[in-house]
Simulated scan of single mutants.
Amino acid sequence: MRNKQGGKPASCGGPPRHAGPAKQVRIIGGQWKRTPLPVLEVEGLRPTPDRVRETLFNWLNHLLDNAWENIACLDLFAGTGALGFEAASRGAAEVVMVEGNAAAVRQLEAAKLKLQASQVNILRGDAGTAVQRLSTRFRVIFLDPPYHQDWLPRMLPLCDRLLADDGLLYVESEFSLTGDAPMPDWLATWKVVRADKAGMVFYHVLQRNTSPQIKA
């Protein structure tokens, strides 16, 4: 779930809008299956679509042999925490969430308390700065940054330092990382092992080119 910034700012004129029904996403699988996570009414804040998360975790279950119990995950730009809490629900041993929005951090803390998710650690701050301070090697990193702000060229080298040798990097973006066009330099050391599109969302699982081969 990400703050997809880069669109037009909300209009300040006109009559006030009435609040609609509360928005939420639900955890798809694991011990907290069907548990709702609120989506804050913050400009530009929206969840990764349910069917994208379902497909992603089907991929990860296959690639990880459904063995989450020893997995450490890093959820950058955590937003609602849908990706990180989903991993924790399925048994991940450790989940670190990084989020810069203060209201979103409070909501993450409330969800952690409600779920009694002791394996979840929530860090408030800029993702680039937080990554440089971390020393844990993560088997799975979720990278779902704001759109149209060139986060991927900055973050992929930083994620490389923290990713385990056989680790998997999930990347969600407004453009495809596959295709016939020449790949940018910042993607040269990575290979895309899974990819799909839902609406305007392109989502991928990446692995280092030099990593031991994971089953197809």
Rank of each mutant, 00 (worst) to 15 (best):
R139S: 13
W151Y: 07
A111D: 12
L168V: 02
P153D: 02
I122G: 06
T136G: 00
A181T: 02
D166Q: 10
D185W: 00
R194D: 02
P153S: 04
Y170F: 08
K114Q: 11
A111Q: 12
H148I: 04
V98Y: 08
R161H: 15
L83S: 01
L163Q: 03
A102P: 07
V171T: 11
E94V: 12
L168Y: 07
A103R: 14
P145Y: 01
E99N: 10
P157D: 07
D180H: 11
L123K: 03
L168S: 01
A87T: 15
V140R: 09
L143G: 00
D150R: 11
L163P: 07
D150P: 05
K197I: 11
S135M: 01
G167W: 02
S176W: 15
G91W: 08
V96I: 02
A127G: 03
A93G: 04
T129S: 08
L163V: 01
Q132K: 13
R137K: 15
P145N: 01
V98S: 03
I122W: 08
S135E: 10
W151C: 07
Q149N: 06
S176N: 15
V192T: 12
K191W: 04
T129H: 04
L115S: 11
L115T: 07
D165N: 06
A93I: 08
S118V: 15
K114L: 05
P157I: 05
A88L: 13
T129W: 07
A164L: 00
D166C: 05
L83V: 07
L113P: 15
L152I: 04
Q132E: 12
T189H: 14
A103K: 14
Q149I: 01
A103G: 00
M183K: 14
V131Y: 09
D150F: 01
T178C: 14
V140C: 06
A164W: 01
D144Q: 08
A93R: 09
S89L: 06
R194W: 11
R106I: 09
T129R: 12
L163S: 02
K197L: 09
Q107S: 13
V96H: 08
V171H: 08
V171Q: 10
D160L: 12
V95Q: 04
S89C: 07
E94Y: 15
A103H: 04
Y147W: 15
L177Y: 03
D165A: 08
G128T: 02
A102K: 08
S173P: 05
V171Y: 06
V105M: 00
A195K: 13
R90Q: 10
G125R: 05
